[in-house]
């Protein structure tokens, strides 16, 4: 085997030679197939309404507090850093509202919400589906001619599609308020909140908001899809469930960053 070959192959724990590139393409292809099969099951959504509602509750409502805390501090730190950096330029502080507003709306709100989703919801989805796979519950569904995509994936994807914009809007607004508190009460900034809000309103338009929500929607669906796919493809025993959770979360976060670049490139 040449040195070039060695870079693209590794020996897995069963002794097989595994092609890394083929593995990545295999994962990617299976995720796309999973998305397609889930879309095909969309007409069955009314029959899965209880599962959709349950997922929407867990994905959305129970994630709200942590999204709120994270966003408030991100908005506050952003205002603090920006206020300190541009404080020496006369009048520049009047634009703090636009800096916090646009950053939260176009970038930090969607990305941080997606990261939180990957860590909190994605890990739970992967763990649940991986343990169902390892303990043959998925096989049991298949023997009953019940599609796991219809029962387990499609309701989650719809729930995330519905809840992600809600979570993102919440994140953005809380981030704005976090920034406002800092600009008002931190002594070296001490900006009138009215100036902060006016600047924010001048720069944040509907397009900024819709771009942010579109990104969030793409991230949310990607995170859910990746975590479902990793969970359903788990093989082995309990140890592999742990590996699957780590894998699902890491791949989701990398994909959020990759998609962030490409979606932003398309939108601007």
């Amino acid at each position: 085997m040449s040195r070039f070959d060695k870079r693209w192959f590794f020996i897995d724990n069963t002794g097989y030679r595994v092609n890394v590139l083929a593995n990545i393409l295999d994962e990617f292809g299976s995720a796309l197939m999973l998305l397609w099969r889930s879309i095909c099951h969309l007409p069955y959504l009314p029959r899965q309404f209880a599962r959709f509602f349950d997922n929407a509750y867990h994905i959305g409502y129970t994630t709200l507090p942590i999204v709120g805390i994270l966003s408030a501090f991100i908005g506050a730190v952003l205002a603090l850093q920006a206020g300190y950096s541009i404080g020496k330029v006369p009048g520049a502080q009047n634009y703090l509202g636009s800096i916090v507003g646009l950053s939260m709306c176009r970038e930090l709100g969607p990305v941080m919400t997606a990261f939180l989703l990957a860590g909190r919801v994605g890990s739970a989805i992967t763990a649940e589906l991986a343990s169902m796979t390892v303990y043959q519950e998925i096989d049991a569904l298949k023997t009953m001619n019940i599609s796991p995509e219809r029962l387990l994936v499609m309701p989650r994807l719809v729930a995330i599609a519905v809840m992600m914009p809600v979570l993102t809007i919440f994140s953005i607004v809380i981030g704005w308020y976090g920034g406002m508190i800092v600009v008002k009460y931190v002594s070296f900034i001490a900006l009138d909140p009215q100036i902060y809000w006016r600047s924010l309103k001048d720069f944040v338009d509907t397009a900024s908001l819709t771009d942010g929500l579109l990104k969030a929607e793409v991230f949310g669906i990607a995170v859910t899809l990746i975590c479902c796919n990793v969970g359903l493809r788990t093989k082995g025993g309990p140890r592999e469930i742990g590996f699957a959770v780590t894998k699902g979360v890491v791949i989701s976060m990398i994909f959020v960053l990759l998609l962030d670049y490409f979606v932003t490139k398309i939108l601007i």
Partner: peptide, 10 residues
């Protein structure tokens, strides 16, 4: 199929 482990949905 009756699975050895039962494979009931937990």
């Amino acid at each position: 199929l009756v699975f050895q482990s039962g494979a009931l949905l937990n």
